[in-house]
Design a protein around this nucleic acid. Structure first.
Lengths: 347, 347
DNA sequence: ACAGGTTATGACAGCGCTGTCAATACGGTC
DNA sequence: GACCGTATTGACAGCGCTGTCATAACCTGT
C-alpha cells in the first residue's frame, strides 16, 4: 500500500514498519548512500562516519532489505537447490554440505523437493528462478526439454550434483554411479564369488541406482560372469523393503546366489537383518554388498561391504564451485568426487 | 547498472536480460498493470485479454521477478526455516513435511542450519529476516535474548517446532518430550522392570533429549523407582555411539540394569547390535527402548520398543498453521501432536 | 434517452536499495 | 599560489513490480 503515509512524514514508520536505510542514515546524519556503503563496507567511508552509521543501525535494530538491494543491482545471495527427495539420509547429507558451505559466505539455499517428478521439478525450477537466485544446485530427477530450456535461458551458474555420468549443461559434481557398480562387481568377483543377484527398489525413479546396476552387470561381464536374478521392488528404498525383498529373492531363485548386490545400504541392512533372522551365515552362505557407506551399515555386528559415496562432500564441493564461479573464477566443469569401496565383513 | 540503456529503447533487453513484465505487456498490447493482473489472475481482466497476455508471456519465456513483486507490496512467498541439524534423519523428515505443504501453496523454504549453536542461530535469523519472508519456522537450539528480540521485532508469524514444553512467543507445534520420557517410564515399569539405566548423547546440545530424560526420571519416581546409571556421551547420536556406549555402560554399572532407555533410536539400535554381538538376550537379559520410531528400529530382527515422534507430520502441521495464519486464520497457539508408544519386542 | 451499476483498463507513484557520476575537501608538489 | 591526486560524501535515477484511484466502456431497466 504505497500511499499510506505522507510524503514528508515517516515518523510513524518506527511504529508500523521495519526501519529502513533512510532512517538509519538520518539518525547518523549522513545520506542514504553513505549509510549503504558504510554498512556494506564498500567504497571509501571515513572511519568515524562508519562507526556512527553502525551505531545508528544497531540502535534502530535495522535489518537490511535484501529484496530491495538485489533488485537495485546487488548480487543475490540466494541459491536455488532442487533435490529429488529427503526421505533418505543421502540427500539430507548433501544438503548439509551445501548449506554449510553457502552459509559460510552469507548465501542461503531456497529449497525445492521434486519427489522424482519431472513436472514438479519444472514447476520448482520456474518458482525458484522467480526469486532471481545467484545460482542453482540441482540433483535432476530426469531432465525434460522445458527444464533444459529454463536452465539455458536463466543464464546463471548451475551445478548438477550426484552423478557425473550424464552430460550436464554447466557444471557437474558427483561420482560415477556406473563406475561404482562396476567397481563392486570387480571386487566381489575378485573375492571368488560367481553366482550373483541384485536387489533394488523403485527403478522408475532412482535412475542413479539403475546406473549402478548397469555398471555392476557390465563389470561382471568383463570377468566372464553373468548377473543372475534381478529383483526390483516398487517404492522407495527402506530397510524393511530390503529385508522382505531378500526373503522373496531367495525364495524365487532357482539356483541360490552366493552374493547379493543391493541398490543401497538401506536395502542391504534389511538384507542383513533377514539373514540374521533366517539363520543364514554371512558371508559364508551368502555375501551382501550395499552402496552409500551409511554409518548404520558400519555399526552392524558385521560391518557391511559397501561404497562410500561422499555425500556431504559432494554438497560442499558443489557449493564451493558455485561460489567460486560467482566470484569470477573458473572452476572445473566436471568434478568426479572419488568413491571409496569399504571392504567390510559381509562379502 | 541502472543507466545502461536509453530511455526509449529497450530492444536490447531481449538480448541481455530476462524479459520483464513491461515487455510482455507491450507484446500483448496492453498496459503493464493489466498484464500483471492477467498473469496473477487478480482483478477483472477480459478473457480474451488474459489469453493474449498469457500467450505473450509464454512466447517470451517470461519468469516473474518476485523480488520486485514483493518489494512492491505483494506478500512474500518465502518462509524462513531454521533447524539445528541435518545429520539426523529426524530433521530431514520435518523439513520434508514442511517443504511438501509449503510447495503446495507456492511457498518455498529458505533454509538455515544452526548446528545447535545459538550464535549461529542468531546470525541465521538476521540473514533470513533480511529476505523479508512471509513467516518463520524454527526449531530453536537455545533461544538467546537477541533471538527473542529479533523475533519480537520481526512482527511476522513464527512457528516453533519439535517440542511444546518450552514457552513460545507465537505458535508451537510438537510433542511433549518430557511427556514422552515419562510415558516410557510408566510403560517399562508396567512391564515389570525395576533396575533402569539411561544412555544418551551430547547433552549440551540436544536439550529435547534432556527433557525426555527428565520425564523418564520423574515417571520412574512416580512409581517408586529410582533411575540408576545415567551415561551421556559427547557428540551427536549415532548407531556406533550407542553400540560402544552400551558396552561401556554395562561394564561400569555395579548392579546390571534390567532395562536401558536410550536418547533415541539411533543409539538404541546400536545398543541392540551390541547385545547381539555380545550374546546378550533381548529382552530377557536386557530390555532396550528408544525414541523416534525410525523405520530401521522396526525392521530389526526384533522390533525396537520406542516412541513414534511424528516428525513429518509436525512439519506438515507447522506449515499448515503458518499458511492458515497468512491467509488470515487463527490457528491454535500450541499444537500438541500426539506421540505414540510402539511396544516392539525389545522391552 | 438517461441514471446507476458493473466490468475492463490505465496512469501514477512508490517499495528500499545500489550503480553511476559529480562535487567537495584535503594534502602535497613544483 | 596554481595544480593535481586521493579520500569522502551526495544527487539522481532506476531495478520490476503492485496498490490505489481514476477513467472508459458496457449493460440493465424505465
Amino acid at each position: 500500500m504505497p500511499h499510506f503515509r505522507g510524503m514528508d512524514d515517516d515518523r510513524q514508520d518506527t511504529q508500523t514498519r521495519r526501519p529502513t536505510l533512510s532512517q538509519v542514515a538520518r539518525a547518523a546524519g549522513v545520506s542514504e548512500i553513505t549509510a549503504s556503503r558504510a554498512l556494506r563496507r564498500d567504497g571509501p567511508v571515513a572511519r568515524d562516519t562508519r562507526d556512527r552509521v553502525e551505531r545508528a543501525a544497531l540502535a534502530l535494530n535495522y535489518v537490511p532489505n535484501r529484496l530491495a538491494g538485489t533488485l537495485a543491482g546487488a548480487a543475490s545471495r540466494q541459491v536455488g537447490v532442487i533435490l529429488p527427495s529427503l526421505s533418505n539420509i543421502v540427500f539430507a547429507d548433501v544438503l548439509k554440505g551445501l548449506e554449510d558451505r553457502l552459509e559460510g559466505d552469507g548465501y542461503h539455499p531456497i529449497l525445492g523437493i521434486s519427489n522424482y517428478d519431472p513436472l514438479r521439478e519444472e514447476r520448482l525450477l520456474r518458482d525458484l528462478l522467480s526469486w532471481r537466485p545467484a545460482g542453482l544446485v540441482i540433483a535432476p530427477a530426469r531432465k525434460t526439454d522445458v527444464t533444459r530450456g529454463l536452465l539455458a535461458a536463466a543464464d546463471l551458474p548451475v551445478v548438477e550434483i550426484m552423478d557425473v555420468d550424464a552430460e550436464s549443461a554447466d557444471m557437474a559434481v558427483g561420482i560415477s554411479h556406473y563406475g561404482a557398480g562396476r567397481a563392486m562387481a570387480h571386487y566381489l568377483a575378485g573375492r571368488g564369488y560367481r553366482r550373483f543377484a541384485y536387489l533394488g527398489h523403485g527403478i522408475e525413479t532412482d535412475f542413479r541406482a539403475t546406473q549402478r546396476l548397469d555398471g555392476f552387470r557390465d563389470g561382471l561381464r568383463e570377468v566372464g560372469v553373468t548377473l543372475g536374478n534381478v529383483l526390483c521392488l516398487p517404492g522407495p528404498s527402506t530397510v524393511s523393503l530390503g529385508r522382505e525383498g531378500l526373503a522373496r529373492l531367495l525364495a524365487e531363485a532357482e539356483t541360490p546366489p552366493e552374493a547379493v548386490f543391493f541398490s543401497n545400504d538401506d536395502m542391504a541392512v534389511g538384507g542383513a537383518f533377514h539373514c540374521q533372522a533366517a539363520g543364514i551365515a554371512v558371508p559364508e552362505e551368502l555375501a551382501l554388498a550395499g552402496f552409500n557407506g551409511l554409518s548404520i551399515g558400519q555399526a552392524l555386528p558385521r560391518p557391511l561391504t559397501t561404497i562410500a559415496s561422499q555425500r556431504e562432500h559432494i554438497g560442499f564441493v558443489a557449493a564451493t564451485h558455485l561460489l567460486d564461479r560467482l566470484a569470477g573464477g573458473r572452476p572445473p566443469r566436471v568434478t568426479n568426487v572419488d568413491f571409496r569401496l569399504i571392504p567390510g565383513a559381509t562379502a
